[in-house]
Write a protein that binds this DNA or RNA. Structure first.
Lengths: 221, 221
DNA sequence: GGAATTGTTAAATAGTCCTTAAACAGTTTT
DNA sequence: AAAACTGTTTAAGGACTATTTAACAATTCC
């Protein structure tokens, strides 16, 4: 599975684009026509597709449709300003984003980054050797599954999402239990203990969830 | 002080944007023209400005300049693709970020969050090799963390914020303990000792926190 | 419906931080 | 040089905060 499948018939532009994307840390695979694009996608898959609409042979619309029928992979359409017509507008609705040529590489990078953050980074959080799957609500450490209760998972997620920042007990409690909760704030500390027991090397000297006296708890980044 | 000042002349779009931002937990104040924007900014301030460049009357460029002359408040420019010219490029350099219409609300939110984290969530004072993180209430010396209690941190911060000036014991005490405190002023001197122990090279001959006889203490800049 | 799991509560325990007071050490005044 | 004053050090204890434990309640699973 590659990060980005770049579909662009101008091979020079395609190569340039790929270079930029690689420089930005993505893995890319280039395709200079629709047929090649689909076979590459079939074979290796992609986390995101950058798709030029104007293609010789199998055109961008067909590629877009073919991909969409299979997966929900995000697609960014590349289009020239003058090309906008109803057909294009229709497809744009299905695409996750579009960008007009001549485009600014920084804007394109921002869009890509945005999509990756929304689509991918959002359901999986990695933090050190821990991996949280937000959809499945599971946690693994070095691939080994750690069983978490709902409250523990919520707590862990909240702390990691605010790593480096001290979260007051009140903040944590309100976010997880809701500010209208009837529960005693005390219960939080108990869950902290269970959590530490599961993720800390030595629960007596917590390195990940540190307590900040008089303030709250903090996930050390 | 409001979180975000939204400057956008299309009132429908402005309202929509404000709703999104409120939903994301920010406080916002809307302005549909440049003059209003500046007067709102003058009056209430803002932690971040979302600025449409195309405005009737006082345009976005003037607003941007006026704000920049006063403060260092981060500004995100909203711009249509076709508008890009030299003038715009110039201003973009001074802005903290920009985003093109039609923009994706998630990308905008991500940008805003990023700026808030970079600019505000990390209020930092550096003094020599010391770095105080006011939010996390942590101190590091050459990157090495120094553990501080609440009182020590408050004291250190107060001294550094008034460096070069002699602070009387009374001033220090009132600021940290509150003038209505029941505690003995003596306790201050004990905290000074702990603090010196932690930050002075040789606590016997303090170089950073010097005592001014009969007057108080002073942080040497 | 019973068993297992998860969540809550309260009380006991442990630990940190702050305060106090008293002894000690300089500085200034007489 | 002694006295009076101001600042420093020390150590003990008290106030407060966090952790642990275990029993009980609630929920989920079989």
């Amino acid at each position: 599975m590659v990060d980005i499948l770049v579909v662009e018939d101008n091979s020079e532009l395609c190569a340039l684009l790929c270079d930029f994307l690689r420089a930005a840390g993505y893995t890319v695979s280039p395709a200079d026509n629709g047929t090649k694009a689909l076979s590459l996608y079939e074979k290796y898959g992609a986390r995101l597709v950058l798709l030029d609409i104007n293609l010789p042979g199998t055109d961008g619309f067909s590629v877009c449709k073919a991909i969409r029928e299979k997966d929900n992979t995000p697609i960014i359409i590349l289009t020239a300003r003058c090309e906008r017509d109803d057909k294009l507008n229709g497809i744009l609705l299905g695409a996750d984003d579009y960008i007009e040529k001549p485009y600014d590489i920084d804007i394109l990078l921002a869009k890509i980054k945005g999509i990756f953050q929304r689509r991918l980074a959002r359901d999986i959080i990695t933090e050190g050797s821990l991996v949280l799957d937000l959809n499945a609500e599971t946690v693994t450490r070095d691939g080994e599954p750690l069983s978490m209760t709902m409250k523990e998972f919520a707590l862990l997620r909240l702390l990691i999402e605010n790593k480096g920042q001290t979260m007051s007990k009140e903040q944590l409690f309100n976010k997880i239990w809701g500010s209208d909760s009837e529960s005693e704030p005390q219960t939080l500390t108990v869950h902290i203990k269970w959590l530490r027991e599961k993720i800390e090397e030595d629960p007596r000297t917590p390195k990940l969830i540190t307590t900040v006296w008089g303030r709250g708890y903090r996930w050390e980044g």
